[in-house]
């Protein structure tokens, strides 16, 4: 409010809001994996555990980054509402597709709301690794193509 120079580096409030959304998506993903893992078969459970670690790592990195720039990281919600009740391996995998798809949207948004090169690079890395995870779960549930054509794009928009 004092000196409202537009932020040339891109780490401004818009970027911070996008990071907070990415953090919220990562919180949700960690929760979804923790729910889904119990329903998955052994092989998929191992993959889910690896993916969970990846989301925890991203979550911690965003939270640390937000803290370091003086923005309070959003907290995880105590629980989330899956779009569909998880009752078996198939519905568990579908939940993970949803979680990864949400994460993709959030990470693409970070790219669109930051002009800071290093942050874009980090967000692109996150977008890419989430695309690979998303593809794996889409394959499990039989969604084609397994690799989304425009990862992170809002539905029906490149």
């Amino acid at each position: 409010m004092s000196t409202a120079q537009p932020a040339r580096t891109g780490v401004d409030e818009v970027t911070i809001a996008a990071l907070q959304q990415a953090l919220a998506a990562e919180h949700a993903a960690v929760w979804c994996y923790s729910l889904a893992v119990a329903f998955l078969g052994a092989e998929q459970r191992a993959a889910a555990r690896t993916d969970t670690d990846a989301h925890r790592e991203l979550r911690n990195q965003i939270a640390n980054t937000l803290s370091s720039i003086g923005s309070q990281p959003v907290s995880a919600q105590p629980a989330y509402s899956p779009p569909e009740k998880v009752t078996d391996a198939a519905s568990a995998a579908r939940l993970l597709v949803v979680a990864e798809t949400d994460a993709l949207v959030a990470w693409r948004s970070v790219l669109e709301r930051s002009s800071e090169r290093a942050l874009r690079k980090a967000a692109l890395d996150a977008l890419t690794s989430a695309t690979v995870r998303c593809a794996r779960w889409r394959e499990v549930v039989g969604r084609e193509p397994a690799v989304p054509q425009f990862p992170g794009a809002p539905e029906a928009t490149p």
Binding site: L127, V147, P148, P151, G152
Partner: peptide
């Protein structure tokens, strides 16, 4: 423009990985 190109990069990277 960055959103589309980032999505394309991620898609191509995923294919390269898979």
């Amino acid at each position: 423009k960055v959103g589309l190109v980032a999505s394309i990069a991620a898609c191509c990277s995923a294919y390269a990985a898979l």
